[in-house]
Amino acid sequence: MIFRAVEDADLIRKAQRGDVEGFNLLISRWEKRVFNYLLRILQNREDALDLSQDVFLKAYQNLRKLEDPDRFAAWLFRIAHNEAYSLFRKRKPEGEPDAEQHSGQSVNVGGSGVFPIELSIAVSSALGRLTSDQRETVVLKVYQGFKFEEIAEILSCPISTVKSRLYTALDLLKTDLSPLKARGAV
C-alpha cells in the first residue's frame, strides 16, 4: 500500500464529480485564507463571513468549469474578489469604495490578545487609508503570497497595474508605519 497526501487537485476532481465531502475538505483548507482576505479588504467580520459562504457556494456551483486544478487558488480568489466588489457596489452604487470610508475608523484585525492593540490598530488604519485597489493588492501579495501573474488574473488587470498599485501602497504604508518602526515595534 502506498500512502500519499491528498492534494487539492484530488479534492477538486472529487468535488467536480459531485462529491460534497471532498468539497467540504477543500473548504476546510481554504476557508481561513478566503475569510481573512475578505476581512482585510471589507474590514467587517459579518460581511467577510457571509461572503465567504457565498464564495464557496459559487465555487461549488461552478467548479466543473475549472479545467486546470493548479489554478484553483487564483480562480477561488477571483470569485471572492467579485463578491466583495459586488457588495461594495451595493453599499455604494455611485463611485468606487475608497479610503475615506475607513479614514475615521479602524478595525482591529487580528484580535487584541496576542499582539499589542496599538500595533494592530495602526496597521488597520494604515491599510484603511489606502484605496480599495491598493489595499486589495497589498493583501493579495503580502498576506496571501500570490505571484503578480496570479494577482493580475484575480483582479483582471495587467501585471504592470498590479505592480504600480502595490508599490504606491508600500510607499504610503512605509510612511504611515514609520513611527512604529522608530519605536521599535518590529
Binding site: I27, E31, S52, V186
Partner: peptide, 30 residues
C-alpha cells in the same frame, strides 16, 4: 525598509474563521 514594513503588516496575523463553512448533500436538490 521593505522587510520592516512587511514585518509590521504581518504582525497582524490571520484570524480564525468564527464559523466553519460546510455543505450537506441533499439528494432532493442534487
Amino acid at each position: 525598509s521593505l522587510r520592516s514594513t512587511q514585518a509590521i503588516l504581518l504582525s497582524v496575523p490571520d484570524e480564525e474563521i468564527p464559523q466553519r463553512i460546510g455543505f450537506v448533500s441533499d439528494r432532493v436538490y442534487e
